[in-house]
């Protein structure tokens, strides 16, 4: 099925007024409608700046950005009717209750989602009358996500969306994001959490020092950076031993086949690499 392009970014450059050099240095990429596009990179690489440009918080950029075929600079504030933004840090009035916060923000949109349904889904409905200042970090993160979804956005921007969540709540949020994508929504995800990337992203881009150094699908990246081999762990004389076999002609590899027939095999893994290893290879920066 042919899909449209939500964002088309060409030769994007951006310099902060107080900086000597460009923070974004000639970035080009497309975000397709109905995909989850992940932007990865070490701190200070330009991820947040790119996202701020796309959500029109920063405007003095060079290059072109089209939003569903329209010049982003020509879009007025009605642009915000169509996008939802989930910030990494909490963005709520701490002395107001969660429901008061959501009512305040939803009041500005023509089209709104079912607030109760969203809050129930992330487990906050029963705490709706509690002041946000009394919320835990995880609850504030979940409320951020609800805030981003309030206007039934066409494009959702999420920054470190599961950071600070326990595995159960992270799963709920990721399921909701996947469902949103399956219904045709577009997601621009910026994160350093490789679990999120593996589980959610259809395509990812690596940003290093203001440039995109790699754009591909997680699968293709794993194939590109992984080893084409099968690693086998087996028991020998009471000890665990391991051996690696090239994938080429593996069906004719007598040593490998003999090991399979021996019944000593305990684990078999293909040599695909993890996203974390790919991140380190591509960006040259260790994840913390």
């Amino acid at each position: 099925m042919e899909t449209g392009v939500a964002f088309s970014v060409k030769d994007l450059y951006f310099k902060y007024p107080t900086s000597r050099e460009d923070t974004i240095k000639g970035v080009s990429f497309d975000v397709h409608e109905g995909e989850i596009f992940g932007l990865l990179g070490p701190s200070g690489a330009g991820k947040s700046t790119t996202q701020k440009i796309l959500i029109k918080l920063l405007e003095d950029y060079r290059g072109s950005i089209e939003y569903f075929g329209k010049d982003l600079k020509s879009m007025d504030s009605s642009f915000y009717e169509e996008i939802g933004v989930g910030f990494e840090v909490p963005v709520h009035f701490s002395k107001l209750t969660a429901l008061e916060n959501m009512r305040f923000f939803s009041g500005f949109y023509r089209k709104t989602a079912d607030m109760q349904e969203l809050m129930e889904r992330v487990g906050l409905w029963e705490y709706r009358d509690v002041k946000v200042g009394e919320y835990s970090k995880g609850m504030k993160v979940r409320l951020n996500f609800v805030r981003a979804m309030l206007n039934k956005p066409r494009v959702l921007f999420l920054d470190e969306v599961t950071n600070g969540l326990d595995p159960k709540n992270a799963r709920i949020i990721k399921d909701m994001i996947a469902e949103y994508r399956d219904k045709g929504g577009t997601v621009f995800l910026s994160t350093h959490l490789m679990n999120d990337v593996e589980q959610l992203c259809d395509r990812i881009a690596f940003c290093v020092d203001g440039r995109l150094v790699e754009i591909s699908t997680p699968r293709d990246l794993k194939l590109k950076y992984g080893k084409r081999e099968v690693r086998v762990e087996y028991r020998e004389d009471g000890n665990i031993a391991s051996a690696a076999f090239p994938l080429e002609d593996i069906g004719y590899n007598d040593e490998f086949l003999g090991l399979l027939r021996s019944g000593k095999v305990e684990t078999i893994h293909s040599g695909e690499t993890t996203m974390e290893e790919i991140f380190i290879i591509v960006t040259g920066v260790e994840l913390k």
């Binding site: 009605s78 009717e81 996008i83 910030f87 840090v89 963005v91 923000f105 500005f108 805030r147």
Partner: peptide
Amino acid sequence: EGTIRSMMVMP
């Protein structure tokens, strides 16, 4: 509280 930033991304 980050609320100004949140208000900047609404109509």
